[in-house]
Amino acid sequence: MKTALSPMFAALALALAATLPAQAQEAKPGDAKAGAAKVAMCIGCHGIVGYQATFPEVYRVPKISGQSEKYLAAALEAYRKGDRKHPSMRGIAGSLTDQDIADVAAYYAHDGVPAGGAPELPAAPPAANAQAAALLQKGACVSCHGDNFSKGIDPSYPKLAGQHADYLYAALKAYRDDTHHTWGRGNPVMAGMAKQYSEAELKVIAKYIASLPGELKTVPQRKFR
Rank of each mutant, 00 (worst) to 15 (best):
M1S: 15
M1N: 10
T3H: 12
S6Y: 05
F9S: 00
F9K: 00
F9L: 03
A10H: 01
A11C: 04
L12W: 04
L12A: 15
L12R: 01
A15H: 01
L16A: 04
L16Y: 00
L16N: 02
A17P: 00
A22T: 07
A22Y: 04
A22K: 03
Q23S: 03
A24V: 06
A24G: 13
E26H: 04
E26F: 07
E26V: 10
P29D: 14
G35D: 05
K38A: 05
V39A: 04
I43V: 15
I43C: 07
H46G: 05
H46S: 11
H46V: 12
G47P: 09
I48P: 03
V49R: 04
V49Q: 11
V49L: 04
Y51W: 11
A53I: 09
F55R: 07
Y59F: 13
Y59A: 09
R60Y: 08
V61M: 11
S65P: 10
S68C: 03
E69A: 00
K70W: 01
L72C: 02
A74S: 04
A74E: 02
A75Q: 15
L76V: 14
Y79K: 10
R80W: 06
G82C: 06
G82W: 05
R84C: 09
R84L: 11
K85P: 10
K85G: 12
P87A: 11
P87Q: 11
R90G: 14
I92A: 14
I92S: 14
L96R: 07
T97V: 06
D100N: 13
I101K: 02
A105Q: 05
Y107N: 05
Y107C: 01
D111A: 13
G117E: 02
A118M: 11
E120F: 03
E120K: 14
L121R: 06
A123F: 03
A123K: 12
P126V: 14
A127V: 06
A130L: 14
Q131G: 08
A132M: 11
Q137A: 13
Q137K: 15
G139R: 03
A140Q: 08
H145M: 10
G146E: 07
S150M: 06
D154Y: 09
Y157H: 08
P158V: 00
P158D: 02
K159R: 13
L160E: 03
A161T: 07
Q163G: 07
Y167E: 13
L172D: 06
L172R: 08
K173P: 12
A174D: 15
A174H: 08
R176M: 10
D177W: 04
D178T: 04
T179N: 09
H181C: 05
T182A: 13
W183M: 09
R185C: 09
R185D: 12
R185E: 13
G186R: 09
N187S: 13
M190K: 10
A191Q: 15
M193R: 14
S198L: 12
S198N: 11
A200R: 10
K203F: 03
V204K: 01
Y208I: 12
A210R: 01
S211I: 02
L212S: 08
E215A: 14
L216M: 07
T218W: 08
P220N: 08
R222F: 07
K223H: 08
F224V: 06
